[in-house]
Computed example of a mutant assay.
Amino acid sequence: MENIGILFANHPHRPPDPSLIATCVAACYECGSLLVACSDACLAEPRVAELVCCIRTSLDCADVCLATARVVSRLTEPSPMLLEVQLTACAEACRVCSEECDSYAAMFEHCRICAKACRACEQTCRALLHGASLT
């Protein structure tokens, strides 16, 4: 994902802190991808019925993360209000999902990995919300 930082640094509408945006986008893409893979791993577990809420929460969070990455990646004429709402939603989805995944982390390594990715994504979304201009 290092190329996204290079692209942002060379974009005609270069943001004040392209590295902060690149870090957020990378975290959102990574988290979203890991959550989809973790959901698949949960589906393969012998007691999958016990993991339905975790699977659903993970897939919902993955959708929010991936949408956030796409929205934040668009630097031309952004809507500050839309960006704020999207980043807030992603941070909250990641918070909820990390708690759900944490409840299975002792049993399943894939859930531990996802909980960690969710916490990192939540932190980068909040950092972008509070640390940089969104226009």
Rank of each mutant, 00 (worst) to 15 (best):
E84D: 13
H13G: 01
L66F: 05
L82G: 10
Q123S: 14
C24Q: 00
A69G: 15
L7N: 01
L51Q: 02
D17P: 00
A120W: 02
A67C: 11
H11E: 10
E92N: 09
E84N: 14
P18F: 08
S103K: 02
A93P: 11
M81N: 09
D40F: 07
G131A: 04
H130M: 13
R95P: 09
S103P: 01
A62Y: 04
C31P: 00
Y29H: 00
T88N: 10
R70I: 13
R126M: 13
H130N: 15
R14K: 15
V52A: 15
E122V: 03
A44S: 12
Q123T: 12
Y104I: 03
Q86G: 10
E122S: 13
M81A: 15
V25C: 03
A67L: 15
E99N: 04
L59I: 14
L51P: 01
L128A: 08
R70C: 11
T57K: 10
M1P: 11
C121M: 07
Q86P: 12
T135A: 06
R95T: 11
D102V: 00
A27Q: 07
A105I: 06
A62M: 03
C101N: 05
L66R: 05
S19W: 01
I4A: 09
T57H: 07
S98Q: 07
M81I: 10
C38T: 12
D40E: 08
P80N: 15
T23L: 05
A127T: 07
P12D: 11
R126H: 10
Q86W: 12
T88F: 09
A89V: 09
S33V: 01
T68G: 05
E50R: 06
P12Y: 09
L34S: 00
C111W: 05
R126I: 13
A127G: 02
Q123P: 01
L87N: 07
C53Q: 13
G131W: 08
L7E: 02
C53R: 12
V72F: 04
C61R: 01
S58I: 03
T88G: 14
L20P: 02
A26H: 07
L87W: 08
V72H: 03
K116H: 09
P46C: 01
L59A: 10
L128M: 10
V96H: 05
R95D: 14
V52S: 13
M81S: 13
C28S: 07
P78S: 01
C94T: 04
C61D: 02
C121Y: 10
D102M: 06
S58R: 01
P16A: 14
I55G: 03
L7G: 00
L7M: 06
R95W: 08
I55Y: 05
A67T: 14
